[in-house]
Amino acid sequence: MYRSLLIQLRVIFALVLREARSRHGRSRLGYAWTIVEPTALILFLTLMFSQFRQTTGPGGSFAMFFATGILPFQMFRNMAQYGSHAIIANQPLFNYPLVKPIDALIARAVLEFCTALVVMAVVLGFQILALGAPMPYSPSRLLLVLGLLAALGFGTAICLAHSQKVFASTNNVFAIIMGPAFFVSGVFFSLQSVPETFRKYLVWNPLLHAIEGFRWAFFPEYRNPDLDLVYLFGWGFGLIFIGLLAYRLMRKTET
């Protein structure tokens, strides 16, 4: 038991190293894009909103508010979207009995999560150190929300990867969903500012709770009576459970 866990960790480690090399192409500059992309988006939103809105909202600046929306959003999107291709992309490696498809899914989740953490540290760290933005209000809340967000991203990736085997257009559909998801997940508004009529629909979106939770951890004055981390937990671990079940069942009858 202990030995097989050790082997699995070794395999996941080897997969993370191999994925890290090919994730952003061959160039070493590839990883710079993971910083450039959210930064450009934060700059764009900040410039746009500062033109016609006076109050900056929680965090003291637009840049901080958008960063705390965009960064967790992209963490989820990358974990789910890139993670869901883990099985197809590593197919030849499953010819080694020690390498199981689930290891490839875990490896991509680990890599995407760690990359997103570094991006968060760089982008938020820059604002804290250079622009005088406040430090995160509660690091323990932040850890909790990041954990739940990671579970949601990983669970979505496993489910998508298996759904893809049955419905070939799964990834196209998911890509289409992720477009509007940007607008209904609280990336550039706080739930509190949404009228009740819309709010009661928005709260069904688990990703919204992750982003609201992220700001709840970051800003002491952030008010959000509708935040429900148990609901987020249910989605994350529910998806992981369903995904693992599909993994078990489908491996019995496929090549």
């Binding site: 490696l93 080694y96 020690l98």
Partner: peptide
């Protein structure tokens, strides 16, 4: 062992060296 075949169990996008390194790591 893994099933050793002429098609190989290599990742086509990776170099021979990278494939070998991966397998060596996996098998400790």
């Amino acid at each position: 062992s893994w099933p050793i075949g002429f098609r190989g169990s290599f990742h086509r996008e990776l170099s021979g060296l990278e494939n070998v390194r991966f397998v060596a790591r996996v098998y400790g």
